[in-house]
Write a protein that binds this DNA or RNA. Structure first.
Lengths: 184, 184
DNA sequence: TGTACATCAGTGAACGCGCGTTCACTGATGTAC
DNA sequence: TGTACATCAGTGAACGCGCGTTCACTGATGTAC
């Protein structure tokens, strides 16, 4: 059945948004197209009138995640102490328990690169974040931005992977304190 | 056919070793038991006379990876400047391109915890490394060990995920320099 | 020591399942007359 | 304005494939006599 004017564009966007969340929560490989479409009240066959393959969706969903994070970061970096605000949010309980709406780097980095979906889009996500961090540093140190981002990504990844909840919290707390006080 | 004395124990160990390498290289979910057994010159049916499920193998393979890394670290931490040696090795070109024989944390952390295989074994891997780092620090700071480990894991993960090889190398170099000079 | 038997690591076909993808079809809408 | 037709987003069955797992079987070895 044919749908009204912009119905297709809306559905297209709904698929990308849902995929973007699921890829971040469960990983790309573990996310099936069938369950994804079903969750949107659609049948899986229709997928291919929107995308030519799962890989194309991965690319679009990665871009969507990047845009979402850009939106969140716009607010965060507008605050009084942008770097502290970013660190606090990145290592917050919200981010720890909400991979589906947070930074894609700790969740899907391991599926990118050599391991599967090499794409300049994923590099762009990282670079965007690095540039934002760099702009808050006194000496505009690109190197320091890389270290800060590595630490944030590592701490969140480890925190999410650990079975002991108290230990998980400690990783976040300790790293947050360190990063904030290592600023001169 | 029945095999000589310790044949089973040998095969058992071969399966664990191969799995340990493949889980680290490709991830747990992306590693099939059929290809794994075939690579060892065995048929997949025989798998279940060694393990009761893939999950059991995951646990054993994680332990094996942990033991392997313990062995490597024993040598590294015996060097003159143990922490510098550890940082150098962790962020080396060898480790970047050899996930299958390196630290399991950057490669399979994202499949542990909430996302699939919660297990105290994985916590143990992290804790072992933290204790070793802590023992090299002047004030035996457990907190600082957590930050260092987070930074190492994050940098290696990002370095491996990035499409641009020069950028990948830069992440390693910059992080290595920072960690080594941040020691007082 | 030589023979008969029990063991059980490994074989290979088969199970149901979910995956990504294809495809003939449907039917409400937009368009043309 | 009213009717006939073309469009095409979405349907749902089917494709081949690899997954984890099961199972009846094999046959060289270790054991018992």
């Amino acid at each position: 059945m044919r749908y009204s004017q912009d119905h297709k564009a809306q559905t297209h966007q709904r698929i990308i948004k849902e995929a973007s969340a699921r890829f971040r929560k469960d990983g790309i490989g573990a996310t099936g197209l069938q369950p994804l479409m079903k969750a949107l009240g659609l049948t899986h066959g229709g997928f291919y009138s929107h995308f030519k393959s799962k890989d194309e969706l991965v690319e679009k969903a990665l871009q969507e995640a990047s845009d979402q994070v850009d939106g969140l970061c716009a607010e965060i970096f507008a605050q009084e102490n942008p770097l502290h605000a970013f660190i606090d949010t990145y290592l917050s309980e919200w981010h720890q328990t909400s991979p589906h709406e947070g930074c894609p780097l700790p969740t899907i980095s391991s599926e990118l690169g050599l391991r599967g979906h090499p794409s300049p889009t994923s590099d762009a996500v990282l670079i965007a974040r690095l540039n934002q961090i760099e702009s808050t540093l006194k000496d505009n140190s690109a190197d320091e931005a890389i270290v800060i981002m590595s630490t944030l990504v590592g701490a969140l990844l480890l925190s999410r992977s650990v079975a002991d909840a108290e230990f998980a919290q400690r990783i976040l707390d300790v790293t947050r304190d360190h990063l904030k006080q290592s600023q001169d």
